[in-house]
Design a protein around this nucleic acid. Structure first.
Length: 540
DNA sequence: GCGAATGTAAACATAC
DNA sequence: TGTATGTTTACATTCG
């Protein structure tokens, strides 16, 4: 099926290419500007075709028909069409840009694809929308052509370069170490000059961005349909506090498609205020999301209780490939890492590995975040160090973890711990509705970009919007509590030594049976109730 | 303003 | 000795 598709698209592309060449020939006898326009139109056609192909492939991928090798990300990069080879593209760009004054296509500091990028990426949108002033750079970062830049980024300081950070070149796949900016500029000019390879890399990055935009648009439509079906009013005032949040404009506002008939959500055209990823899930493809760095305080897993496990499951590929800081606290992430393992325990190094494996963001600044991880492990009582023959491993004391959570949640979260069981029986639809509304109102709805969740388990997915612990605990029950004979520390044949902590009278059973404490969490019965009562399909 | 939670940095100890 | 690991402290920030 895939082959057929690819063949089909190949043929289409060849036809288009042929047309393009024909047009080029014919264009020689025509005034330059119409030629440029026509070529642009053809180029757009080509790119749309490529988009279509990628969309299909993505759909196939979603349906499990196509699997991507690790490292390829959610975007089928390896399938990026080659219909426009770099040299063609370069030629195209030359001709297209020749029709209009493009100053300094190649700037002193290196390749500047801003104008051409705009031409190539905005597609038909360029015809109807004002010139977008943001431009995505090959590494997914965005340069703003507004005078002000995102001050939250330490890379945006004067004398810096968006492609340069932490002493290394951030050109995709490069990572060449450069001692200073001067050396970097030199490197940029030599290694990433305007040649076929760089052009191709730019194209790939453009495709990545386009794909994400398309995906977002589609999921936005889906969400609208869902909300319409549920009689919700997404465009009610109040929704989002971040005006620059793409989701707020693209997802929930019908006017998006009016503003941009191409159906593509367009990132904000200016960034006058730094954006933190507080309410941003991967569904928020905003420029600042893609390069948010620096100290970020609250994570939405804590504040808005994004279901970390489900979000991670859904957006695994995104976090794995995009240099985006995950919107979760270190504690949440560590806990997630530990709970994801069969044994519910990890060595420090394994935790490190999980971080780097799961998040591209944590593949750099290792000293900083590793220190933070160790700090969190030591600081939070919910993380318990257990020694075995292999060395020390870390486990999660779920009870402690729950205890440290501020009891300020509404809906089922409150009912989970404090209300009688009977309350959970009333949950399903009403609570779901209010919860959903609350989630929509309070967050950027991180499930938006989660086709699997929407497709296969929307109910559970929505219900999960409310508490990551709930989802995780439910998963625990499913994956561990009932059917998997996992090894718990006490099950090891060797004696288990638990770091001596001041034993607390009330929950002192921890050293004896950590896993028991974890799995026999007092909250589980409710979770189990929920699992039983709700039409949850995808919890296994 | 206060306190809790969190992130970051750093110093220090210990084990290998 | 260097590195990994673990603990602790300090300080800044965010948010209720």
């Amino acid at each position: 099926m895939l082959q057929q598709l690819q063949e089909y698209y190949k043929k289409q592309q060849e036809q288009l290419h042929l047309q393009l060449l024909t047009q080029q020939q014919a264009g020689k006898q025509q005034p330059k500007e119409p030629l440029g326009n026509k070529q642009l139109a053809f180029q757009q056609q080509l790119l749309q075709m490529q988009q279509l192909q990628q969309q299909h492939l993505l759909n196939l991928q979603r349906q499990g028909l196509v699997s991507l090798p690790p490292g390829q990300g959610s975007v089928p990069l390896q399938t990026l069409p080659q219909a426009v080879c770099p040299s063609d593209l370069q030629q195209l760009w030359k001709e297209v840009t020749a029709a209009q004054p493009v100053e300094d296509s190649i700037k002193q500091e290196g390749l500047d694809l801003t104008t051409t990028t705009s031409n190539s990426t905005s597609f038909s949108a360029a015809k109807v929308s004002p010139p977008i002033s943001h431009h995505l750079l090959p590494n997914g970062q965005s340069t703003m052509h507004t005078p002000r830049r995102d001050s939250s980024s330490h890379e945006e300081t004067p004398g810096s370069h968006p492609l340069y950070g932490h002493g290394e070149c951030k050109w995709p796949g490069c990572e060449t170490l450069c001692e200073d900016l001067g050396q970097f500029v030199k490197h940029l000019n030599t290694e990433h000059a305007l040649d076929d390879r760089s052009t191709a890399q730019c194209r790939v990055q453009m495709q990545v961005v386009q794909q994400l935009e398309i995906q977002l648009a589609k999921e936005s439509e889906r969400l609208q349909a869902m909300m319409a079906h549920l009689h919700m009013r997404p465009s009610e005032p109040k929704p989002f506090s971040q005006p620059l949040n793409l989701v707020s404009s693209a997802t929930l506002s019908k006017s998006t498609s009016d503003t941009f008939p191409d159906g593509l959500p367009h990132p904000p055209t200016s960034a006058t205020a730094p954006i933190t990823p507080l309410r941003q899930g991967p569904s928020v493809i905003s420029s600042s999301t893609l390069h948010n760095v620096g100290p970020i305080r609250r994570r939405n897993s804590e504040k808005f209780c994004t279901p970390i496990s489900s979000e991670l499951a859904q957006n695994h590929e995104f976090y794995k490939n995009a240099d985006v800081r995950p919107p979760f606290t270190y504690a949440s992430l560590i806990r997630q890492a530990i709970l994801e393992t069969p044994d519910r325990q990890l060595t420090l190094n394994e935790i490190y590995n999980w971080f780097t494996r799961m998040f591209a963001y944590f593949r750099r600044n290792t000293a900083t975040w590793k220190n933070a991880v160790r700090h969190n492990l030591s600081l939070h009582k919910c993380f318990v160090r257990v020694e075995n023959v292999k060395g020390a491993v870390w486990t999660v004391d779920e009870h402690e973890y729950q205890k440290r959570r501020p009891p300020k949640m509404t809906g089922w979260v409150l009912s989970r711990g404090t209300q009688p069981r009977s309350h959970t029986h009333t949950f399903p639809l009403l609570r779901c509705h209010s919860l959903l509304q609350a989630a929509l109102a309070e967050s950027s709805f991180p499930l938006l970009n989660s086709p699997t969740m929407i497709n296969t388990s929307s109910a559970s997915g929505m219900l999960h919007v409310g508490h990551d612990d709930v989802s995780s605990t439910v998963e625990q029950v499913n994956s561990n509590g009932s059917n998997s004979p996992r090894l718990s520390p006490q099950q090891y044949s060797h004696p288990v030594h638990v770091k001596e902590e001041p034993a607390e009278a009330e929950d002192d059973s921890r050293p004896v049976s950590l896993m028991a404490t974890t799995n026999q969490n007092v909250t589980i019965p409710d979770d189990r109730d929920l699992e039983e009562e709700l039409p949850v399909e995808d919890l296994s």
